[in-house]
Structure formats: structure tokens, C-alpha cells
Design a protein around this nucleic acid. Structure first.
Lengths: 148, 148
DNA sequence: GCTTTACATGCAAGTGACCTTCAGATAGGG
DNA sequence: CCCTATCTGAAGGTCACTTGCATGTAAAGC
């Protein structure tokens, strides 16, 4: 399914902003923040507020999912269509030096016992530290995307 | 060990603000945010910036530890002296309706495999949803502290 | 007990993520 | 091709948190 079709299939209008953003995030294939997206020329042309709303729309249409970092920002990643998606099924690694986030797809989310009466809406399992690149070059933080 | 002694033992100056804040957090025995602390009259008298710095000092002295919520705020909780502490050894539950957080002490933090070369500094496992109180009274969000 | 000084506090101002409002633009059904 | 629901952009606001600087104070040294 092309990005264009995916947007329509999700019941959303196919606007240039949504196409650009969705195509971009799909190409990156790792969780990226609002700020990281804005670094790209094609996306920088889109108003910052529109980018927030575009991400919210794609999220609502289940085309993306998002992960919260301990740096206070959300990162967005393509949602495999038909699958449960990131938030419910694996952990993430956040490099606190360069800000890059990686999916730990091999790390399944453990089951949890919550207090009686409580209802679980979601789970976030975040491991933070330093990625291999930043660890190897302490003086030169890696550019976003250098980390696997 | 009294709060006063604990502060000194951590190599910190024993100031009124630190004594008040530490005693208070110790009495609550659950993760509380900066905003929740300010609701208390004794702490409301302390300048908000000073409260941030007091929490940072107690954190640095290993008297407290903090947990990040997906609502973008840190919550602080007493650090059992000598123990590894919350962040490394159990999960937390956050009620997205009333904002209360509870420690899931029975839920140990799972082991994780990170990409080669990466170094782990910490792990956050947060379960979010609705606590029993909020779930029972959808119209009346629970006051902080009502939840176990 | 008194002095000294390094550290703590309070205030003002700033940053960064994100939301709300509203007028103008546009996708896409009819 | 038009009309309307929806999207976009710009301005302005909120909230958590930080920084800089002058004043206040804990506690070490005498």
C-alpha cells in the first residue's frame, strides 16, 4: 500500500503535509521526535503546529504509534498495519547523549499485575543510556540516525 | 535515622526547606510530583524554584529517586537507603485521570538486551491507565493519594 | 560565641514542548 | 465545478523546568 492509499484507508484526507510526513517517517523506520522531523528540509517547510496536528491525525488513524522518552518528548514511528504495534509489544532504547531512539523488537513487554480495580491502557518500557556510537566517541555526540 | 540525620549523612546542608520536603515525601511513601508537593501548605511556602533545587539536591544525595510519567512530569519517592532503589527494580502505575502514581513493587524489572556497544544507565517501566477509584467514579477524578 | 565563606534561597527572566483560537485555504463528495 | 467539512498557518498561551544573580544562612574554623 502506498503512503497515499494508507492515508485514505485510515479515513484521513490526503494532504501534502500528511503525505510528506508519513512518507518520511516510514523511510526512517525508527522512532523520531517532532524536533528531529523538523530538521529535514521538506518537513521544515511545514508549520510546526501543523506538524503536531499531522502527527496527531496519523496517530489517530493508527498509521503511527508513539513512544515517550524521559527527555519529555514523544517519538513517532510507523505502525505496522494490522499489528498491535510498538507500545504494546516491545521495549525501546533511548540514548541520552544524542537523543536517538531504537526499538528493541526482541524485548517483549512483560505482563503486569496492577492494583485491584485498575484498568491498563498501555505500557511503556524504556531503557536509557548511551548508544554504541556515543559511547565510542564521548566528545562527538552521534547525529540522529547513526545508531541502529 | 531521622530525616535530619539522613540529610547530613548524604553530605547535604540541613536547611528548613530540605527537612520539610524530605519529611513530607517520606510520609507520603509514594511517587509525588512537584505540583502535588506544592499543594501542601508547608511546602507551598517554599519557592517553586527552590523546591526544584531541593528535589535535585535530595536526588543527588541518593535520598530520593524519581520516576518519569508519560504526562511529562517527574515524580519523586524516598530511596530506601542501601537499596538499589525504585528505578532499577520495579514498575510503576500511573492513573492518567487523577495523575496518581503507585509503585508496583511486586513487578520486577525484566532484563534487557541492548544493541552492541550500548551502555544502560537506567530502565523505566511504566504502566498507565485508570486507577480503581477513578474507574469506579468516572465523573469524579480521585484526589491524589486516594489510590493504593 | 563570633566570624567567615561556601552553599542555599528567592526573584526575574528564559527555554522548549505542546495546546488553543481563529481566519483563510483546500480536499473531495455531490 | 461547486460547496462544505476539514486542514493549515499564525498568534498567543500554558506548563514543566532551567539559568543568572543578589541576598540569606548553615556550619566549619577560630
Amino acid at each position: 500500500m502506498t503512503p497515499s492509499d494508507a492515508i485514505r484507508a485510515a479515513g484521513l484526507r490526503r494532504t501534502p503535509a500528511r503525505l510528506t510526513v508519513y512518507t518520511h517517517i516510514q523511510a526512517l523506520a525508527r522512532p523520531v521526535s517532532h524536533a528531529e522531523l523538523q530538521e529535514h528540509p521538506a518537513i521544515a517547510a511545514i508549520d510546526a503546529i501543523t506538524l503536531y496536528r499531522t502527527l496527531a491525525a496519523l496517530l489517530h488513524g493508527s498509521l503511527l504509534h508513539r513512544v515517550h522518552g524521559i527527555d519529555g518528548t514523544w517519538r513517532y514511528c510507523v505502525q505496522p498495519r494490522g499489528a498491535e504495534g510498538c507500545p504494546g509489544n516491545h521495549a525501546h532504547f533511548l540514548c541520552t547523549t544524542c537523543g536517538a531512539m531504537a526499538c528493541l523488537v526482541a524485548q517483549p513487554m512483560p505482563r503486569v499485575d496492577v492494583p485491584t480495580g485498575a484498568v491498563v491502557h498501555g505500557r511503556h518500557f524504556l531503557v536509557h543510556g548511551q548508544c554504541g556510537t556515543c559511547n565510542a566517541n564521548p566528545s562527538q555526540p552521534a547525529r540522529h540516525g547513526d545508531t541502529a
